[in-house]
Amino acid sequence: MPASTQWTANRVLLLIGRLCLAIVFLAAAYGKLRPLNATPWTLHSLEVTPSSLNLSMTFFAMQLDSYRMLPAWAVSPFAHTLPWVELAVGLLLLFGFALRYVCIAATLLLTIFYGAVIHSYAMHLAINCGCFGPNEKLDAWTLVRDGLFFALGIAVTIGAFLMHKRNRAAVSSSPRAELSAR
């Protein structure tokens, strides 16, 4: 395969990976912020009001509390912050801004989530995951799914760094760069 074709294939792969990761984060934020009593993925579920938002985030705090990993004082602030962080990370991934740094943040978050899920599964806690909204049982499938997301996060992060390195090399070897070096 010629180098240019390989290069394009890598870029497309990175784009697909980045979009998949963006969808994961946006879906996670949507699941936590949507009104609790609205059917998911309907227009009705986008009718967010301040009181529905408060209720959804408190419900998420209860789900977080059932993990028994955070001190009582930290549960509510964490639950009220995380969905917004997920939304920001999802949007940044979607638009491809500051990709390397956003990828690091996304992978760190996925590492924390995966760790929490493994911990709860090992402790035989019969709880809801809360990952993509309410009423989602934490089971072996959650473990597999979050493992895949974690692997995707790492792959996209590595890809973003390699792409950046390649771009810099290409720019520095261009005729204009050579001229400016002289």
Partner: peptide
């Protein structure tokens, strides 16, 4: 009907949830 909650949720959080419902 709201989605089911699972696990040993602490009273302060449950109270917060109930208060928010009642204030709606």
């Amino acid at each position: 009907q709201y989605p089911p909650g699972v696990g040993a949720i602490s009273w302060p959080l449950m109270k917060q949830f109930l208060d928010q419902l009642l204030s709606q």
